[in-house]
Design a binder for these strands. Structure first.
Lengths: 240, 240
DNA sequence: TCAAGAGATTGGTATAGGCCAAATCTGCTA
DNA sequence: TAGCAGATTTGGCCTATACCAATCTCTTGA
């Protein structure tokens, strides 16, 4: 039942010991040095380093080197306002609109929004930052007529505020499905992570008070930094 | 801003097209065949296949081959009983006790439970299965005196039921922190996934009505199958 | 005919090395 | 002294190959 540990995992553990007493920011030996030190190939070292990077324990910069890192965790509580939540942690949230389009919905989107296949939706792609650093890439899909959406959104910043004030759309309830994903090249590029890095994906479907689906949003958070916090009062629920 | 897509990502997309019309269970070309077909190295093909396996779209068996798979998703709602939730989805949940120990808590555990460093805790390691297939590895840490814990737990199956009925411990509220993780060799072995496969990790801290921490549990779910669902009523919360 | 063993096939892991891209350093010139 | 160009360093990506482990198929013997 006990799986044999691959060599790169052992190397990873050795690297953890190596950096245990190092201050965040301090440089580590190069990949080539680590390979010589651990008498292994550079590829094996790279696998070990990738796993540590996925956990935010090291930061790797091409051309510069690999550095010990303190995981800079961001916690977001489900029931609270994202921005207020971050501010209460002393963080500075901001966001940037990357693209706003209007076109046919892909099958998963139209299904989530209860549209007929190929129905038209507005698509808003935003980058979410904390203290100026990218944290998440969010693509919202919104059905219905939303004239001048980009301008209205740029004026207010908040998508929900925009929906409510500019279009009379008020959200009543939402369902978040949390899962893992691997960063696509596009996501990797805008978030400053590697393609294939583990990400925390949240797919939200929100409905208004009449039960109409008014939003389907897929958000991809950096797995090394983001933590989703859900609280519950007990009724015997045993999630685990 | 657009990152160059690594070759393995392109190969992955080609493989997706290749299997788009295939039935789940149907065999795919071998790694060596795919490498020849896409004029690339087997290592690059393997990277592409690993990404698809992480999403549950293919199943890889050493010595046998690689097969198209239908992601067999399991959805668990935060506010409901795990077992009842699964049964309502027509699934058959079960669990198996792997190990029950009593010893010194590691620093993260003692911190989570508000114990002094090295304080003693009971540790219960369980495998969670759905329809006979491993889904999660769960390690619960429980403070206090819990005599004959293993026997009591084996009698009842449910940890919370055991705590309540055998030890008078009733949980009042819990906080779940959801994050990504990579499967350790141990986790990989018991869950039947590869070391390093992306996992959804839920760390739960539960308190009783007096605010005492009575449980700290880390659960590691297969990222290719497990989805954590959280619902909220709106108060302007904008998680994404 | 069935079971066991041998051989073939296929995925799993690792090595050695090459080449490219990003960052940094060094040296030269204005 | 500052800026720029070139060289160097270091991480990022890929190739070719070898070997091992798990599974499947075929052959042989009882």
């Amino acid at each position: 039942m006990e799986a044999r540990a691959p060599k790169y995992h052992l190397v990873m553990e050795q690297i953890v010991e190596l950096i245990a007493e190092q201050e965040p920011g301090s440089p580590m030996p190069t990949e080539r040095d680590l390979a010589a030190r651990f008498a292994t190939s550079r590829t094996t070292v790279r696998q070990a380093l990738a796993a540590l990077a996925a956990d935010g324990r090291i930061a790797r910069t091409q051309g510069s080197g690999t550095f010990v890192a303190e995981p800079d965790r961001v916690y977001v509580h489900q029931m609270t306002s994202y921005s207020e939540d971050l501010r209460s942690q002393g963080r500075q949230p901001s966001s940037r609109i990357l693209e706003v389009t209007h076109g046919r919905a892909l099958p998963d989107v139209s299904a989530a929004l209860g549209l007929e296949p190929g129905g038209r939706v507005h698509r808003v792609e935003r980058l979410r930052l904390v203290d100026g650093e990218p944290l998440a890439l969010e693509v919202a899909h919104l059905p219905g007529r939303l004239p001048r959406l980009r301008a209205e959104l740029e004026r207010r910043g908040s998508l929900y505020e925009t929906l409510r004030e500019a279009y009379g759309v008020t959200l009543a309830r939402a369902e978040d499905v949390v899962e893992t994903g691997l960063a696509s090249p596009h996501e990797a590029g805008v978030l400053g992570v590697d393609t294939g890095a583990p990400m925390l994906v949240i797919r939200r479907t929100a409905h208004d008070a009449d039960g109409r689906a008014v939003e389907y949003t897929r958000s991809v958070f950096r797995g090394d930094r983001f933590r989703f916090v859900a609280r519950s009062a007990f009724d015997g629920a045993e999630v685990t």
